[in-house]
Amino acid sequence: MNRVEEKRLIQAASKGDSQAFAALYRANVQAIYRYIYYRVSDAHVAEDLTADVFTKALKAIRTYKDSGKPLIAWLYRIAHARVVDHYRKTERRPDQVDIEKLSVSESADMDNRLLRQQTAKALRLAISQLTADQQQVIILRFIEDKRLEEVAQLMGKNVNAIKALQHRALRSLASRLERAGFKIDEFIAGLL
């Protein structure tokens, strides 16, 4: 959806056009779901929180002020607040799950499919344990496949800050997986 169309829909939705809001919802729901999923590592919680985000957005769309950024930037903000609220209510933090429980020291002997599943699970868990900023950079850059400049715009930071975040996030993921015994070298070799 281009910006012109998005602006038109926002304007219509702000006047109570539910179909316009539905169109905005359909255009953004999967991205918001993925963002939340990687932050909470639970499909059901992610689904509930995604619904919450759009319920909040629906209530607030009439007062939405366009600052020149795409709507998704605002939705990410709401999603972030919902995730923080979720952790506050459940009194659980993502780092309470130990990634090393997923250790695959015998990976070389494991079935490739199982290894892949296990590695993917460990990587998702490792992402959920990053700081919120680092998570967002990883999600936007490598899962949503956005350019560095787009990530900077969405997060309201400059490009150099995003580069630094990207570097720290990848370094942190690498060391977490390494500590858990994942042999990324071998796994990557199998992928390529």
Binding site: A43, F142, L170, A174, L177, F187, I188, L191
Partner: peptide, 21 residues
């Protein structure tokens, strides 16, 4: 050394099957 680990993780992340509703 640093580049290798980080590039591998980035590549691996792009290959994750994105969750979806």
């Amino acid at each position: 050394n640093e580049l290798k680990a980080e590039l591998q993780i980035a590549l691996l992340t792009t290959r994750l099957k994105p969750p979806s509703l």
